[in-house]
Structure formats: C-alpha cells, structure tokens
Nucleic acid binder design. Structure first.
Length: 236
DNA sequence: GCGACAG
DNA sequence: ATCTTGTCGC
C-alpha cells in the first residue's frame, strides 16, 4: 500500500522550487481549454489527501461516484510521503504521486476528476486540477474552499448564485454558492471542461452539503486510510 | 520592503 | 493540512 518510489514515468519529481516552476511552464500549454469533455459524465471521481500531524506521511484517496445517483461505485487509496514541501502555487507536486497511485488502483475509470484545489485559478494557470488533468488526460475541475488568488465579490445568498473570480483582466474561475446562505466555493477549470459545465457539475454534486459529494467521500476515505496506516505503524 | 499564500 | 470545546440547530 505504499506509494511507489520516484519512478512514475508520467510525472516529474522536482527537487527544488526552480525545477517545479520549470515543470509547470512546460506542461501549462498542454491544458485543453476547449471543453472537449462530456457535458454529462456517467461517473465522477473525487480526490483528496489527509496528512499525519508528524508531516511525514499522507493518505490519498479517490472515490468514483455514479454521476446520477451519487452512489460510490469504486474507490482506492495510497499511503505514502509528501513528495514536495507545501509551497502555495506548487501544491500539486506534493500530492500528485500519491493521487496517481490511487487512481491506478481503481477498477472503474472515471470520466471526470473533481479535485480538492484549484485549476486555472492559479498564478501560472496550472493548479492541481490542471496538472492532474494533463497527466491523466481526463477532464478535470478544481473546487477550492478558499481562494489562492483573484478578486471577487460575494455571490447572492441563494444556491446556484455565482460571481466571477478575476485575476486582473482574466476570469480564472467562479465563486459559487452551493447551498443557501453558506460560504461559497471556488470553482475553476482544470482540463477539457468549460467553466459553465464545471459550474453545473459542481451544483449537481452538492444536493445537500457545501462541498461536492465527491470530495466528501474521498475526504472520509483518506482520513480513515491514514488512521489505519498510523495504527499499523504504531503497532510495528 | 511588507503581507498573502490551494492543502 | 492538523491542532482544538463548546455550541447552535435540524
């Protein structure tokens, strides 16, 4: 259950901030902004990671939901170590190896990835959702709980209301109210998905709570997996 | 120069 | 992210 070492041909494992920035610059042009993904995917995956307080271990989880019923139809976890320090803007390098390993363990290939973090709403327009999308080739969207950058005004209190998230002249995402009167989330395009479709998808995934069912199920799974790994480590 | 800064 | 108590509400 351990994350494989530093040998995943799909990704780079930068050893410095400068190297990580170079990787983002190189991959950024590969993001598909045409929205070539299915407007109504049959399956949607949620991805999330939990960290041990010691900071030396993490658990990544992916849950695949039936897009219509929101029932979990598959899931997988991967326990490993953070692959990079936490640096705002380089966040993806920290979780990518473990998330890809978890994706590899799935039986059902999801048609859309819903990431816990941003996509284009990123200083170099290449947040975790873009990175995961490009590396896997799957449509992806980013849903952040707090903004990384951008100017915005609060959307109306009603579920479904939204305002643009802007970085200078560019609209990099949307501030979306997923529940009446509850703090909004920050939606941005990751890969092969339009902002309109991404918004519709997030609303379809939030019939009851602020956060998408995808991230909620993945969050519970990675927390449980981490707790189990910690318990095993303690007993060994 | 001084903050802000996804998880 | 994680650490943390109680508290308000359905």
């Amino acid at each position: 259950m351990e994350t494989l070492g530093a040998s995943d041909p799909r990704i780079d494992r930068p050893g410095s901030v400068a190297e990580a920035l170079a990787v983002q610059e190189r991959l950024r042009p590969l993001v598909d902004l045409a929205g070539s993904g299915p407007a109504e995917p049959a399956t949607v995956a949620g991805l999330d990671v939990a960290y041990a307080e010691s900071g030396d271990r993490l658990a990544a989880a992916v849950t695949v939901l039936d897009a219509r019923t929101l029932a979990v139809v598959d899931s997988a976890v991967s326990v490993g170590r953070p692959a990079f320090g936490y640096v705002p803007g380089l966040f993806a390098f920290r979780e990518l190896p473990a998330l890809l390993d978890a994706l590899d363990r799935l039986t059902v290939l999801p048609e859309l990835l819903v990431c816990d973090g941003h996509g284009l709403a990123h200083p170099r327009r290449f947040g975790l959702a873009c990175h995961l999308g490009v590396v896997t080739g799957l449509p992806a969207i980013g849903v952040g709980k707090t903004p990384l950058l951008g100017e915005w005004t609060p959307p109306a209190q009603r579920r479904g209301a939204w305002t643009p998230l802007c970085d200078g002249d560019e609209t990099v995402g949307r501030v979306l109210r997923t529940r009446d009167g509850v703090k909004p989330v920050f939606v941005s395009v990751g890969h092969r998905m339009s902002l309109d479709d991404a918004t519709a998808r997030v609303l379809a995934l939030t019939p009851r709570y602020r956060l998408p069912e995808t991230t909620r199920t993945a969050d519970r799974l990675c927390r449980d997996a981490l707790a189990a790994a910690e318990a095993t480590a303690r007993a060994t």
